[in-house]
Design a protein around this nucleic acid. Structure first.
Lengths: 131, 131
DNA sequence: CAATATACATAGAAGTGTTAGGTATGTCAA
DNA sequence: TTGACATACCTAACACTTCTATGTATATTG
């Protein structure tokens, strides 16, 4: 699957829930999160580190995640992030918001599909969900 | 249904596709678009005019819509917007992007639902779709 | 005559990604 | 030894967008 270009605002809207959801599953660190997003999106999304690190710092400042330094077996320093209970609560809320907007959008699109064809089926390729 | 508060970036990400989709169905003007979004979201979304007008001006500047003045039977001036073919193409693209991100998010959430309960069923209330 | 709904518009503040740059270490091949 | 590459973190200037507040004007209703 080719990399897609995403609108800046769509990146902004999805970065927080995606990061929090990844961390809710398992503690992780910046570089690995970028790779994980790549996997989860089936190769569609390519995050830049210049985008992600400020996001992580913001989430930490807001108390949604906590950071700790670790040294990997490889010898490299990694900053691991863990989601807090506040972070989990926020994730639930963001999810609710996203789904409300999504339902609205799908409703309008459905009404349109008579006039404007959908074009490529965006999800013929199933997304991988393994650990 | 109560009004929900939406994250600023989520508003930013959804405003363009929502406006274009509404206009793809039928020409409309600012004030009516705000009311329409209210309807389409089942009362969840409340857009402010201070947000919408700059959006409409931007869409016009980008060539996605065209504006014309009309005077309603009521005597009030209205600025009607019509979607262009470029606007339709852009709408299709935005829709593809949204659905790609949505599929990714739903994938992560699904993997999480074992650990974090969904909470309220966000869509027990069906959304209205009438013209 | 006042209040409300309709209808448009703009300005400053605050927050965000993009792009570009910087630092440092480990692995691998030439 | 050297160079290239992946790993791993961080920050800054810039452009863009919403939010909040404010302003203008007209029609309807009580």
């Amino acid at each position: 699957m080719e990399t897609m270009d995403f609108n800046k605002d769509l990146i902004a809207a999805s970065s927080t829930p995606i990061v929090l959801a990844i961390l809710a599953k398992k503690d992780s660190y910046g570089y690995a999160i970028i790779k994980r997003v790549q996997e989860l999106s089936g190769g569609r999304m390519e995050w830049t580190d210049g985008m992600l690190y400020p996001v992580l710092h913001r989430l930490e400042r807001l108390g949604y995640v906590e950071a700790r330094w670790e040294v990997a077996g490889s010898g490299r320093r990694r900053k691991y992030y863990r989601i807090t209970s506040r972070g989990k609560a926020h994730l639930t809320d963001e999810r609710r918001q996203w789904q409300a907007v999504d339902a609205t959008l799908r409703g309008i699109w459905k009404a349109l599909s008579i006039f404007i064809p959908v074009g490529t089926a965006a999800f013929a390729t199933p997304l991988p969900q393994g650990a």
